[in-house]
Amino acid sequence: MKIKDGFVLREVAGSFIVVAVGEAVKNFNGIINLNETGAFLWKILEKGATKEQLIAKLLEEYDVDEKTATADVETFINKLSEAKLVK
């Protein structure tokens, strides 16, 4: 799973946001707010990763148990899929 071309993560005034540029603007014309964990997962997904890899990275970086990490990753990738941000 990988973030589609044309979606970029930026930090603006203390918030993590995703905006569309180039061709992606045709289908998406707003901003998405991400929390810190969301931004962390997003950066990994820019290079591409599986669900299992995301969970592993989350466990490495944050002090969470596997059940919580799995739930968080699943929620996050479901939202990305619904918004058609990943390929």
């Binding site: 603006v12 005034a13 203390g14 918030s15 946001i17 707003g30 901003i31 707010n33």
Partner: peptide, 9 residues
């Protein structure tokens, strides 16, 4: 700033 961000955008 977070609350005003989407407004400005």
């Amino acid at each position: 700033p977070q609350e005003m961000l989407s407004v400005v955008f």
